[in-house]
């Protein structure tokens, strides 16, 4: 539990960093770090398969997507960047305070919840779960992926009109 607590605190801090940092590239790295920490949390909770997915897809693929978008779109002069950095502090200082207030506040209002938890399902194995009980989700996933493929075909294709 203590390890989990530490990891979760680190995760929130990494998320905070990804918002506060003024460089987009650093924000992406921080996001990937959040993802990696989530992966470790999942390993700690005995969910290795989801953890592997999170690591390879979220920490890996999404970072690549982010970095390529940044490299395609970002061209900001240094001067402007420095000027904006000052303004950013004004907009973002409430966030850490807010986080602290929410965290401390919530830890005080805790009331024990008395609810009967359901019995764990008989199908404890993830493979059976995925391939036999949740096939419809897999079908849905294929659908979403197909939509994504068309999205890439349409959105990333250059403009036909030549501009």
């Amino acid at each position: 539990m203590n390890v989990l607590l530490l990891l979760l605190i680190l995760m929130v801090l990494a998320g905070l960093w990804s918002i506060l940092t003024s460089l987009l590239l650093r924000a992406t790295i921080a996001l990937a770090l959040t993802s990696v920490l989530l992966t470790v949390v999942m390993f700690q909770m005995n969910a290795p398969l989801a953890a592997v997915f999170e690591l390879s897809v979220c920490a890996g693929l999404i970072s690549v997507v982010f970095i390529s978008v940044i490299s395609l779109t970002h061209r900001q002069p240094l001067k402007e960047y420095l000027a904006r950095r000052q303004k950013r502090i004004l907009r973002f200082w409430p966030l850490p305070v807010l986080l602290l207030v929410v965290g401390v506040g919530l830890s005080f209002v805790h009331r024990p919840v008395h609810i009967m938890l359901p019995h764990p399902t008989a199908f404890g194995d993830i493979r059976i779960m995925m391939w036999q009980l949740r096939r419809l989700d897999l079908f849905g996933q294929i659908l979403v992926l197909l939509a994504g493929v068309y999205g890439v075909l349409i959105l990333f294709r250059g403009n036909k009109n030549g501009n």
């Binding site: 949740r134 419809l136 989700d137 079908f139 849905g140 996933q141 659908l143 979403v144 939509a147 994504g148 068309y150 999205g151 349409i154 959105l155």
Partner: peptide
């Protein structure tokens, strides 16, 4: 799919499939 499903999460997956294709369609 949505019209015939009886599962909350599958419902979500199908709704998301619709949503993703809608984003793309708007930008056709």
């Amino acid at each position: 799919g949505i019209s015939m499903l009886r599962d909350l999460f599958s419902l979500y997956v199908f709704i998301e499939a619709i949503a993703v294709s809608t984003f793309i369609m708007i930008l056709l």
